[in-house]
Amino acid sequence: MASATTTVNDDFLAKANPFRRELLAHCYRMVGSVHDAEDLVQETYLRAWRAYDKFEGRSSLRTWLYRIATTTCLTALEGRRRRPMPAGLGGSAHPDTPVAEQPDVPWLEPVPDAMIGATRTDPAAIVSMRASTRLALIAALQHLPPRQRAVLLLRDVLAWRAAEVAELLDISTAAVNSILQRARAQLDQAAPNEDEVTEPSTPGQRELLDRYVAAFEKKDVPAIVELFSTDVVWEMPPLSEWYRGPEHVGRHLAVRCPGGPDDIRMVRTSANGQPAFAQYLRAPAGSGTHFLPFNLQVLTLTGNRITHVANFLDTGLFEKFDLPQHLAD
């Protein structure tokens, strides 16, 4: 009996583990939290392992796992509040007004590219993965009710047939098409135009990021602001205040942001298919550690300008991104 169970376990893991990263991406799109997504993938695999002896192969194992993952996410989302970004809660603030943390809000979280990167070498799969995990798109998805979210992801991201989605959700094909139409309409109002968002692949864009790092480490606010678009957005969860426009962002950086020249270090990483930086702040004198985690920035580029900076002040994210907990000088 033990040998048979071991064989089932080994067979299941060998066949199911290659899908773990893309299932994590799917759960992340559904719930907007890398921590919750990891838990939901674990629950998905546990449910799948328990039911594996009943898997009849009427669909592919990948499709079967996505069915379980989607159901698991929908159950987890029952009664939960959506995960917003500050700009989704109200109008922009003036940089001279007081700022306040909102720890009771379940804020949206970024996801490391290393955790969800496409396991296939197909360039189209890699581009699709990046596009479908853009931070602005994930934030827009959170505005949809969970069932609308699931239908849109299954149809538009995973390219399931309407009949497959209907079977999963136990509704009619007509209902699936109606839900999808409403979801697309609402998403169009909140999501960015993907054709305008660009990868940092050209020499000019790479130089832009180099200048951004140099300016921040020198605390050269005019040089930072020069890299922004005229309608740049600056967000800082768990702070509910956010700013629009280079003037307001520059005022915030000059007046409120701690540190001076040479007090900040930037470590490159990537999140949500976008360039990102871990920002470290010089520790107080005598602490024994020169630079400590301060925030995680995720940047959006449009052409040769920075159009959005999301500053995540939750330093617990550094562990998820496999970033050091301190830097030497």
Rank of each mutant, 00 (worst) to 15 (best):
V8Q: 14
D11C: 07
A14C: 15
P18L: 15
F19W: 01
R21S: 04
L23Y: 06
L24N: 01
C27F: 02
Y28P: 01
H35K: 10
E38N: 13
L40F: 02
V41I: 08
Q42P: 12
Q42W: 05
T44V: 07
L46N: 00
R47A: 03
R58F: 14
R67L: 15
T71G: 15
T72Q: 00
E78G: 00
G90I: 08
S92H: 10
A93F: 07
D96P: 08
E101N: 04
D104R: 01
L108K: 05
P110Y: 11
P110A: 01
V111P: 11
D113M: 12
M115D: 15
M115K: 12
M115R: 12
A118Y: 02
D122A: 08
A125L: 08
I126V: 15
M129E: 02
R130H: 03
R134W: 11
L137S: 02
L137Y: 03
I138Q: 02
A139G: 13
P146Q: 11
R147H: 00
L154T: 10
D156L: 04
L158S: 05
A162I: 02
A162L: 08
A162N: 08
A162D: 09
A163R: 02
L168F: 03
I171G: 02
S172Q: 14
S172W: 01
S172Y: 04
T173F: 09
V176N: 13
S178F: 13
S178H: 12
Q181V: 01
A183I: 07
A185N: 00
Q186M: 08
L187N: 13
L187G: 03
A191S: 10
T202L: 02
K218M: 09
D220A: 06
S229R: 02
T230G: 15
E235W: 09
S240H: 08
E241N: 09
H248P: 14
L253E: 05
P258K: 11
G260R: 04
M266C: 13
V267E: 09
Q274F: 03
P275G: 07
H290V: 13
H290Y: 15
L292M: 14
N295G: 00
T300R: 09
R305V: 13
A310D: 14
N311V: 04
D314L: 08
K320Q: 12
Q325K: 13
A328F: 03
D329E: 13
